[in-house]
Design a protein around this nucleic acid. Structure first.
Lengths: 110, 110
DNA sequence: TCATTATATAAACAATTGCTTATATAAACA
DNA sequence: TGTTTATATAAGCAATTGTTTATATAATGA
């Protein structure tokens, strides 16, 4: 169960094109900030601010690994299933992530 | 299929507490503006502007009957199923509508 | 036709948003 | 320790949002 106010804040967190794209990417794989900057072709501060918003709503999770900070979808989030249905209605982000890999820009730090 | 931009605009239309309440009410029944004013205890211009926004997003439909303008959920809307799932997570609006009826404030113009 | 009721629209305003530029912090490495 | 790389944060600013008050429009009925 959600209050109307909670629902408003959660929905606002995803009601923005860049944040929708981020959520869409993260349903495919965990990504770090610099990968998202590359994918979205936007400034790093702008991306970081969107990530902060999504993190505060607990829609995504943060994890530092060395120099990098990785973000992933929070599968425990109350709206996770709804989010998946929504992402299904959007253009697939898979090609973008694949071309990131073929461009040699994936970060692999294990 | 939706573009990211479309998704942004559709989501923004419902990412507001008053509009979420309106949508929630309209999943139960068709209502006119004055009924929504009574239910939501907000000014008529404010309600009308929220209704306009929802109508422009085609989430709700408008129909004039005499003096009154009635609004209903658009079951053909691309996000209708998603909306129903969302509304299911919110407090039930049924009691509110019932007390409107018992308060003698339902508009019945057929 | 005039008054009333229901609704829409417009103008004004404070609050929020999302960007930019500049700077701070944090980890890695020479 | 100093430098580089990755990321976060802060300040400034234009655009959008949601309210209020005031006014316009639309239908009804005396």
């Amino acid at each position: 169960m959600l209050t109307f106010s909670d629902a408003e804040h959660q929905l606002k967190a995803i009601s923005e094109e860049t944040r929708l794209r981020i959520v869409s990417y993260l349903t495919i794989d965990t990504l770090c900030v610099c990968e998202l900057v590359e994918l979205l072709q936007m400034s790093q501060p702008s991306i970081s601010q969107h990530l902060k918003r999504l993190k505060q709503s607990e829609i995504i999770l943060e994890e530092r690994r060395g120099k990098w900070v990785f973000y992933s979808i929070n599968k425990e989030h109350q709206l996770y299933t709804l989010l998946l249905h929504l992402v299904d209605m959007l253009p697939s982000p898979k090609e973008d992530i694949n071309s990131l890999a073929s461009g040699g820009k994936r970060i692999l730090c294990e």
